[in-house]
Nucleic acid binder design. Structure first.
Lengths: 325, 325
DNA sequence: GGTGTTTGATAAACCGGTTTAGTAGAATGT
DNA sequence: ACATTCTACTAAACCGGTTTATCAAACACC
């Protein structure tokens, strides 16, 4: 396979390994013109390609960063990830993406694995259940940025959206439109985003003087969602509007409605927290709370980049506003 | 940061580095129980985490593979990539994803970069314009799998779909439905997939005894697409059906139709080559040619894995059938 | 001409593991 | 009792770069 090493180049050019290394690192300060040329020719002749791994070992810098996504099946995650990758490629970094699958154990495994791989930093969509680990990373001064979900009691760079507020505005919008029976569908309330969205919903109802009806709050995992929705729609008072707390919930909801022949926009109003790709292009009667995923990803990457390059700053939480469309 | 090395563990445990290495690699054959315990304790006490980079240097195996995607903005690409990543994670590999952006120069840069990073193999959605490079990789015996697009004159593992055939069937379906004026929108015919899809279209028309009208074939880049479509819809004879050669073309088409107030399903029939996420859940009147993206990704990963593990086999092209839905 | 500085290049240590060859000492065979 | 094999462990080379300390030659200065 590839076996031309720097030693081969040095021999071919009649110089020492060190000189070749200087050349490759463009430290030309004290280097003769003919030496440069000889090395250039030798590299060309042998088709030499440097070995990054060897360099990384000495330099303790791999130019790789890790992204640990809580759940890659969210479209939002892939958008953020893509923005991070774009930023990385522009700054000569490479990203390794891992999917923790909402499992704290997996998350832990990946954090350790990526640190063993000596990645220069991590961007994490935290499951929120590995506080000890998060804390020790931060204490060590290891470059980390958290995205999407906030972790309490931790001084760390974070990039999130205003979950409660934008949900509040969306629900308010419905109320202003005359809706009195607004349902809320969400996965188990295990992470901050879901709880904040629910809070926004409740506050909007309260502020409008509407009663919070527990029957209208459907909390279920994706596989159970359809079953629970069936209960919701067999109530005497049926919801006229439904809030889906994220895209996967929306998917379950849509499947359910399709099976039941309930038409969005006609029989029920729908809002989803999250953008659904392409859907805005069609004449669908569905509203979206769209997070600025790309900007958030870019910001996260930038914050990580600064930490990697030792630009000392105080940890800060960046809140990006979402938009109702 | 992290500075506990194997030497530290060895000292702490009162044994040699080699023994610690043996222990970590679970080569217990000739190892005393107390030695094992001492090492275990030392690792625990010091919080030692091995350095993969150092291991990789010696072993010439990084447990990383590269994925070079021609254009990550295709939903198909992300689906395939995700399947590859899943497979990798299951087999203790990590994937690095690069987006060549349909640019052969970028593709070349990434191939070289990833080889410099010593990745164990590459899965490439080829731009098709780096044949020399592809050839040299294959000749060197470097593990490679091609996905989505086939490269001529090259004995290499490939995973593709039957572009011409499935397009043929879709067009035939329209013809059977009574359509006579079927338009075809495609990006510049620079890669095999687009050409094959166009061939399928033409053959279906020919076989049905319909004329191939060059005005009905819109070949344009995404930014130019809307302008060219305007021309198409200002013809005397207007198309009653439109084939979008991939999801990005579909997006441009849909934007255009929305602006013009032309309704899919009512004013015009639409087919897209590619699945559009979520869209099948709604009552949309759009047809899709869906490639089995996940299966294709898994297959590609599997083929790469076999090559990395030296399971010698003859290169083969795997054609996965697409489905009209 | 002696001293100091700049220029150009190198030998050797180093990064943190893996691997090979080797070595005591104990156990076994005859 | 002596040769042989097994067991448990280690020293040192190695992977392919980077970096540090060093050195010779050329040049500058007074």
């Amino acid at each position: 396979m590839q076996k031309v090493t720097m030693a081969d180049v040095a021999r071919e050019a009649g110089v020492s390994k060190s000189t070749v290394s200087q050349f490759l690192n463009k430290r030309y300060e004290y280097m003769g013109e003919k030496t440069k040329r000889k090395i250039e020719e030798a590299i060309e002749a042998l088709g030499y390609q440097p070995n990054f791994i060897a360099r990384s070992l000495k330099q303790k810098r791999t130019s790789m960063v890790g992204i640990i996504v809580a759940n890659i099946t969210h479209y939002f995650s892939t958008e953020v990830t893509r923005a991070i990758e774009d930023f990385c490629h522009q700054h000569d970094l490479h990203a390794i993406v891992c999917n923790a699958d909402d499992d704290p154990e997996k998350e832990k495994k990946y954090i350790e694995m990526l640190q063993a791989k000596q990645v220069d930093g991590l961007i994490i969509f935290p499951t929120g259940k590995n506080n000890e680990l998060y804390k020790s990373m931060v204490k060590q001064g290891y470059p980390v940025v958290f995205v999407d979900r906030s972790v309490e009691e931790l001084e760390v760079f974070s990039v999130i959206t205003d979950n409660a507020q934008s949900t509040y505005r969306a629900i308010q919008h419905f109320i202003n439109g005359g809706h009195k029976h607004i349902a809320f569908a969400v996965q188990p309330l295990t992470v901050s985003t879901r709880m904040e969205r629910l809070e926004g919903y409740k506050k909007a109802l309260r502020d409008a003087g509407l009663e919070i009806n527990p029957d209208f709050i459907t909390e279920a995992s994706i596989p159970e969602m359809k079953g629970k929705l069936k209960k919701l729609f067999s109530l005497d008072v049926k919801p006229t509007a439904l809030f889906a707390a994220n895209d996967r919930v929306f998917m379950a909801v849509t499947e359910f409605l399709k099976e039941k022949g309930i038409q969005p926009g006609k029989d029920i109003e729908l809002v989803v927290f999250d953008n659904i790709p392409f859907l805005h292009l069609l004449e669908t009667p569905i509203s979206f709370i769209t997070q600025p995923a790309a900007e958030m990803g870019t910001k996260a990457a930038e914050l990580l980049f600064q930490q990697i390059n030792q630009e000392e700053k105080e940890p800060e939480v960046f809140v990006f506003p979402s938009r109702l469309t």
